[in-house]
Each structure stands twice: as C-alpha cells, then as structure tokens.
C-alpha cells in the first residue's frame, strides 16, 4: 500500500481544516493526494490501489453516501483515462482533473445560488430544514440582492443543526424562527415554499437528506406547497433505493425492538443511539431541483447520471 500515507487521516484533516468543504470534494482531494504519493508501475496495480482506497474511505466514515459520490466520480474518471498510453500519463491527467474538480467545487454553490435566485422573491416565507451550506449560499445571495423574506427553520434533532442555520441567517439580517420538528404541519399553512439540501441525490431523482426531510416533503405536498431541493452535481450518487431501509447507512439495529431491561433503560440515551440520521425522499415529493447543471425536474437527474456513467 501507500506506506506512510493514510487516506482516512488525510480525509479527516481536510474536513477539519475547512468547514465549508463537502464530503465528496474532500474524498476526491484525498484520492488525488494518494495517487500523487504512490508509485504503481502497471495500470492494473494503479487502479487497484485507488479502488482499495475508496473502499477504505467508505468504511471509515459514518457519512458514506455523499462521500461515495466523490469516489464514484473519481473511479469513473480513472476508467475513462485507462486508455492512456502509460501509467504516468494517466496519473498526471487524473491529478490534473482531480485538482481542477476540487478547485471548481467551491464555485458550484454559487452557480446553484444563481440558478435558484429567481425563485426567492420578496415577501416570501420560506421553510428550510436542518443546516445546508448550499441553502445558505442561495439565501445569502438573495440577501445581497436586497430581497426581503422570512425563514422558518426546523430545529432538526438530534444534532439541532437548525440552530446553527438560524444563527447564521440572523447574522445576515434575515428574520427567522426556529420551529420544533413536530411543528412542521402546524406551520406549513404560513409557508410559501420549502427548501431542502441533500446529502445525496439518487438515480430515481429522489434525495437522501437529514432525517425529517421525508415527513416535511409529505406535509408540503399535502399542503400543495412547492419543495425545491438544492444539490451540487457531485452529490449525485448511483443508488436506487426503493424504501427507507435500502440506504447504505441502514443498520439492522436501528429502532428494532431490542430486548431491554426496564430498570436499565435510559430512553433519552437510547433515542440518538437507535435512530437513523438520514431518510430518503422519493422524487414525487420534489417540485424542482436546483443544481449547478441548471434547474431540473427529478427525472432530469437520472438522465444526467446515466449520461455520465454510461457514455
């Protein structure tokens, strides 16, 4: 293997260094570092090392969905470049492409914001779920365009990331309120549109996101409010979940009626231990998606994925 270089360590340090970096981008960044350091002599060995590193990365982190999107893009690029004359040539091309990808990734959020900004209008009430950097980008842009709007933010248990979003929006001068996750149905009447981010966008056009997104989407649909999902294209993953339990993050011990002794059970602690962190929202609940490739219908997403992976 690559000797002293530990890809997981590098990945973690990248995430720690820059709070705004996304998992897939950090994954590609680490993979580039890896192939810079290793010195395989045959193409086969070269590809094997990269594949193993991807597997290691996926296993090592709890947030493997969006990370695997980055790994997949990298591996696909590698197989495209396998026609190259020599290993050295392939390595160089891959490093160049990977570095460009990491550098370009920051711009993705701005492009999403640009595509999404006509949808944010004056006097709107927006409901957002949890904390998402790309939503912050869009709303931040709307603020600089002098749009006046109000934002409800779900608290988003168990990590209460909604509070972070609220603090950030408040700093931007946007009137905001944090609501309980259980109050989504209560507040929906007052809302003009719902914005959600995505951990990953899957082949069906649905999305995987922080727990609570699915129920939010169901309520929005029932109330006939538009729900827009925001995602950078490097979050498109090759998965086709048919139910909530098809996600790679699913574990059989989640909410599984384990035998518990009445006197030893701490329900409060049990709560975050046995609850899932992500859920899957089917495409039927999503009005439109704002991505850096443009505004899309959910079915447009599968098109992009097929175009990328099957050409």
């Amino acid at each position: 293997m690559a000797g002293a270089f530990d890809i997981v360590e590098h990945y973690n340090s990248l995430i720690k260094e820059d709070a705004s970096i996304s998992a897939p981008v950090a994954a590609v960044g680490s993979l580039v570092k890896l192939i810079e350091k290793q010195n395989a002599t045959t193409m086969l060995e070269f590809m094997m090392i990269a594949r193993q590193a991807c597997d290691r990365l996926k296993k090592a982190t709890d947030n493997s969905i969006s990370l695997s999107a980055g790994c997949d893009v990298f591996l696909k690029q590698m197989s495209r470049l396998a026609h190259a004359q020599s290993v050295e040539e392939c390595r160089k091309a891959l490093i160049k492409a990977g570095t460009d990808f990491v550098q370009g990734a920051g711009r993705c959020r701005d492009i999403v914001a640009e595509f999404g900004s006509p949808f944010v209008r004056d006097e709107q009430t927006i409901l957002i779920h949890s904390y998402s950097r790309v939503i912050m980008g869009l709303l931040g842009r709307a603020v600089t365009q002098n749009k006046r709007f109000r934002v409800y933010i779900t608290e988003s248990r168990p990590d209460q990331s909604g509070l972070r979003a609220a603090a950030e929006l408040q700093r931007l001068g946007v009137p905001c309120e944090v609501i309980l996750d259980a109050a989504v149905g209560y507040i929906m009447e007052k809302v003009d549109m719902v914005l959600v981010g995505a951990e990953g966008v899957v082949e069906s056009g649905g999305l995987i996101n922080k727990i609570g997104t699915y129920q939010l989407a169901i309520i929005a649909k029932a109330a006939k409010k538009p729900l827009y999902a925001l995602a950078e294209s490097f979050k498109f993953v090759r998965l086709y979940p048919l139910s909530q339990y098809d996600l790679p993050t699913h574990r059989s011990d989640l909410l599984s009626f384990k035998e518990k002794r009445a006197d030893e059970t701490d329900w409060q602690a049990e709560l975050s231990r046995s609850n899932p962190m992500l859920d899957y929202t089917p495409p039927g609940f999503i009005t439109l998606m704002f991505t850096d490739l443009g505004v899309m219908t959910p079915s447009g997403v599968s098109d992009e994925l097929i175009k990328f992976y099957l050409d």
Binding site: V28, V73, R80, K92, A93, D100, S233, D292, F308, D311
Partner: peptide, 19 residues
C-alpha cells in the same frame, strides 16, 4: 482532450475515444 474535466455534466464523449 488530454486532461478532461471531472464531474457530472462534463462531456465524456471526447475522453472515451482513443487518441
């Protein structure tokens, strides 16, 4: 042609062709 862009939405048609 020689160092193609990576990521979705980048045309791959040119890359899959051999030189």
């Amino acid at each position: 042609c020689e160092t193609p862009g990576m990521g979705l939405g980048q045309s791959g048609a040119l890359l899959t062709r051999t030189f």
